[in-house]
Amino acid sequence: MVAAIAGSAILNGILKNFFQRVRPDFHRLIEIGGYSFPSGHAMNAFTVYSIVSFLLWRHIPSRLGRWTLIIISSVMIVAIGISRIYLGVHYPSDIIGGYFASGFWIATAILFFQYYQEKRYNKNIKQEKEIS
Rank of each mutant, 00 (worst) to 15 (best):
S102Q: 06
G98D: 06
Y99S: 10
I72K: 01
H90R: 05
V48R: 04
Y35D: 01
S36G: 10
D25G: 11
I32F: 09
L87W: 00
E118N: 15
S83D: 05
H27V: 11
Q117M: 11
S83L: 08
P38I: 04
R84G: 07
M43V: 13
G65S: 12
P92H: 10
N124D: 14
F112W: 08
G33N: 11
D94T: 00
Y86Q: 06
Y99F: 15
N44K: 08
Y91T: 02
L29N: 11
G98E: 01
V22D: 14
T68Q: 08
S132G: 05
K119Y: 14
S102E: 03
P24L: 12
Y115W: 09
L69K: 04
Y99W: 15
F37H: 10
T108C: 13
S8D: 02
I5R: 00
H41K: 07
E128Q: 12
W57I: 12
I96Y: 09
A107S: 15
L15Y: 14
E118K: 15
V52Q: 04
A107L: 14
F26P: 09
R120Q: 15
G13N: 10
F26C: 09
R63T: 02
R84S: 04
R120C: 12
I71P: 08
I106C: 10
N122Q: 11
N124T: 04
I110K: 05
V89S: 03
K126T: 13
E31A: 05
I125V: 15
M1K: 05
L69R: 08
I82P: 10
I30H: 10
P61Q: 09
K126E: 15
R28Q: 10
Y116N: 02
I125H: 09
I14E: 02
R23G: 02
R58Q: 13
I80T: 02
D25S: 09
I30N: 05
N12G: 00
F112P: 08
N122T: 13
I125P: 04
V75D: 07
L69Q: 04
A45Y: 03
Y115N: 06
S39A: 08
I30A: 03
I30S: 05
W67S: 13
E130L: 15
L11D: 05
S74Q: 07
F54Y: 15
